[in-house]
Design a protein around this nucleic acid. Structure first.
Lengths: 222, 222
DNA sequence: AAAAATCTGTTGCAATTGCAACACAGGAGG
DNA sequence: CCTCCTGTGTTGCAATTGCAACAGATTTTT
């Protein structure tokens, strides 16, 4: 991927991009599926952008129970938000799901002003603002899902959000396996399975593979 | 409160502040306790900063169940994240808890460049970045709490975070009533009460009024 | 192609949680 | 002082959820 296609450098021409990448000391690395991309015990100032591939942000609590905090695709950004959190309390990691190329930049390099590329700096900051806004929206969506009191409500809330974001004409699709979905929803897998089956039997939900459809018209009783 | 005390205008001197406030078409309004400050059905571009007072971000789901999404104090910022979201799906509102002064700015006014105050604009954008970063951390903390599988774990996780943020020497304090806390944790109030009582009896937790203390040394059995 | 590993789907049982109802405490306001 | 309203604390019972175990399907590795 060329630098100027990168969301962080959007709107900046290629020559400036190259200059800024070296100015930022940006670092591009490749990871294989399953490899750990980032561990929040390391550097809180580090910021990553996925150039290609997919990854997940996972958390292991004291009992070793895994929660998927977020799924990350191409152009996803991570690391910005944990600048001040006490991450030692919980083990948060970014793990590659497929082969990934990741660009690392230090947040402080972006925020500071330098003589060489001032006009570009502020553009990058604006882009970053935009990205953080989008990221925060997805955090809010997550909270909306987790706020639901029952598994049924969590599931329907989650599927509604996916459905809403799916372009017209395309079939909405769950970006997880059922097992991973249960981690995302923070519920027991077999209990989730039970709910899915129940909703299918009630005609509220249709699933084939990962494609699904929600029927909202019938009043969802029983 | 003077403009230059405002977090959004931090590092900008007063004359520039005044100029920018009119340049931004910033709007300062007063709300009484209980009044609705913002309704996400209205303007997605609008951004608010609480100048004084406290407020809460609440959500009413389809069944009318209230969840506190966040509590907002002086200098809290809201409205930044929902720029593109379909918030019409769920009824999100900002409601004053006490009398509040709130400054409203349009997000697009901040991001755009103007000839009159360019150097200040980028400073404001940086400040905004900082604010969003902090806000996103609190969203992540909320997710961390809601990710916990049981009420006990949710409660302890929540209290740990509060404890960690409390300055040394001060007694950690819950910023909610128990009833509001149950909304924040998205659990049933009486079930939460039951857990609190149980933890107190087991010597894990001490609470007087809203001040509390967690004992972590004993292994939390029973 | 066989073996290993992971995911799906199901179920009985135990534990947790929600619900509803009630008693009591404290604060606001007439 | 009394009343109204909101929050606290408790409990029995019902509903939901977690847990464990298992069988079969699917994918990955050898």
């Amino acid at each position: 991927m060329l630098p100027e296609d990168n969301i962080l450098f959007k709107g900046i021409d290629q020559s400036d991009c190259q200059r800024m990448i070296s100015c930022f000391n940006a670092d591009i690395k490749t990871f294989r599926s399953g490899q750990k991309i980032m561990d929040y015990s390391d550097n809180p100032d580090k910021l990553g952008v996925i150039l290609c591939g997919t990854a997940v942000m996972v958390r292991y609590d004291i009992n070793g129970v895994r929660s998927i905090m977020e799924s990350l695709n191409e152009q996803s950004i991570f690391g910005v938000y944990f600048t001040f959190t006490a991450s030692q309390r919980s083990g948060i990691e970014i793990v590659a799901e497929t082969e990934c190329n990741v660009m690392f930049v230090r947040r402080s390099e972006i925020t500071k002003r330098c003589e060489k590329a001032c006009q570009c700096h502020s553009k990058v900051v604006e882009n970053l603002l935009q990205l953080m806004s989008e990221k925060a929206i997805s955090l809010n969506e997550r909270i909306e899902v987790l706020s639901q009191r029952t598994i049924e409500e969590k599931l329907i809330s989650c599927l509604s959000i996916i459905e809403e974001k799916t372009p017209n004409g395309k079939a909405p699709q769950i970006p997880f396996s059922t097992t991973a979905l249960s981690d995302y929803l923070c519920v027991n897998r077999s209990a989730l399975q039970r709910e899915i089956t129940r909703l299918k039997n009630n005609g509220v939900l249709t699933i084939s593979k990962r494609k699904f459809k929600l029927m909202r018209n019938r009043d969802s009783d029983n």
